[in-house]
Amino acid sequence: MRSTAPVLSVRGATKRFGGLVAVNAMDFDVTEHQVMGLIGPNGSGKSTTLNLISGALKPTSGTISLRGTPITGLAPQTITHKGIARTFQLVRLLPSMNVRDNVVAGAVFGHRRRWGAEAAAHADALLDRVGLGGKGDMPVGQLTYIDTKRVELARVLAGDPTLLLLDEWLAGLNPTELRIGIDLIRSLRDEGRTIILVEHVMDAIRSLCDRCVVMSSGSKIAEGTPTQVLSDPDVIRAYLGDDDD
């Protein structure tokens, strides 16, 4: 299992905002074809960790490397070129463009670049892939909530990233949509993509993740398979508080 070199390794990554330590000396690896869940209670620093990896924020200290090459503190566009792509916690689409162009936006400047008819065809194929076939010409303003999430996912996939960061991609979906969403991510997993999943939905974590890193108050408190970490007393205490045990 552990024979392959890690795709991403995070060593001592720390982020301070003034006096507040949002992420404290995080260490973890993600290996090829693995879906890693980054979980923890609200405000535990999961999204900040994701922002450090994607380049949206620069770490105060520590190193992050992609296949052995340090990418610490690089600009987000450079990190995207190197093959890491992300979704946003609150879906961000490009309001002036139709669905297809929203996806093309991810294809033109990403890890692998396409342009013109090739990019449009690639976008249409991805729209089929996420279940939006035939909706390419729709304005994004008319989409349902889950469809906006699908467009964002297609945009992120359009640059053929080697590592996918999904920030609470399943949050806010109703039970039916959640089913669809989980299936969609599972299909990405089955394709052998490497994914970091920041997630709250336990069902999704159990069924999708190979491994989980649990954060609380900015630090890693547990690491292992979903079953292991979800039965870890420290993790339960972090989620439920420790005054009733």
Binding site: S54, G55, A56, A75, P76, Q77, T80, H81, A85, R86, F88, R92, L93, L94, P95, S96, M97, A105, G106, V108, F109, G110, H111, R155, G159
Partner: peptide, 13 residues
């Protein structure tokens, strides 16, 4: 023009 954050994360300098 639509979203600079998305632009950066899509690989645009």
């Amino acid at each position: 023009g639509d979203d600079e954050e998305v632009a950066r994360h899509s690989g645009i300098d």
